[in-house]
């Protein structure tokens, strides 16, 4: 079927050679299916012919070149202004971006929300809660010195844990916080030793 369609289109488009055209026209006289298909394509051709000479408003065409000349002159006059305004807008956008970036808390102010000021006077539990909260919210990362200071207080003394076993007293099970802080400043060997001792002494 596609072959027939192609032949019809080529015929209507004038692509057939003289011999092919004569052959096609002969077939068209006697082949009913071809006649019908040809009639359908002819419809398109007729629609094209009707739309080929549209005319149109003469004044429009008379004014095309004068309008072009006018816009050419306007472009020449306004182009320096355009350049300056584009430059100005770019500059403003840069300033705004810098201001936004500077004030979102990405660059932190050490005086406000310092770890010390937040955690002063907190109990261990409160401290852990505060630290977890701050760490989760990435507002402040406690310094190593500060962590070490806490770990070296009585209940968190690594050396004390390793050397003594509280028998009558209640055993302090190390919280995640404590383990994390030991890990942050203890060396590997020291850490390994600590874990073994803690396991042996049933603290963990």
């Amino acid at each position: 079927m596609n072959n027939i369609k192609e032949q019809i289109v080529r015929y209507l488009d004038g692509q057939l050679s003289e011999e092919e055209r004569i052959e096609f026209e002969k077939k068209l006289r006697f082949d009913e299916a071809l006649k019908k298909a040809y009639a359908d394509f002819q419809q398109v051709n007729e629609l094209i012919s009707e739309a080929k000479t549209p005319g149109g408003d003469k004044d429009y065409f008379i004014n095309i070149v004068p309008r072009f000349r006018q816009s050419l002159n306007n472009n020449i006059k306004t182009s320096p202004i355009k350049k300056v305004s584009y430059g100005f807008v770019t500059f403003i956008m840069f300033i705004c971006t810098f201001y936004i970036f500077n004030n979102t808390g990405v660059i932190t102010n050490p005086d406000i929300n310092s770890f010390e000021s937040i955690t002063a006077g907190l109990s261990d539990e409160q401290f852990n809660e505060a630290r977890n909260y701050l760490t989760d919210n990435t507002l402040v990362t406690p310094s190593e010195d500060l962590v070490y200071q806490f770990v070296n207080e009585d209940d968190f003394d690594l050396e004390g844990i390793l050397q003594s076993v509280p028998s009558e007293e209640e055993i302090n099970i190390l919280s995640d916080y404590q383990i994390n802080n030991i890990e942050s400043f203890a060396g590997e060997e020291e850490l390994q030793q600590a874990y073994e001792e803690l396991l042996t002494k049933s603290i963990l």
Binding site: L47, I48, A51, P54, G55, G56, D57
Partner: peptide, 18 residues
């Protein structure tokens, strides 16, 4: 549009739609 003749305009618009 610049085509004032309605009949012509309709024919052109018909083929344009297709």
């Amino acid at each position: 549009d610049i085509i004032s003749d309605l009949e012509k305009r309709e024919k052109i618009e018909k083929i344009q739609r297709y």
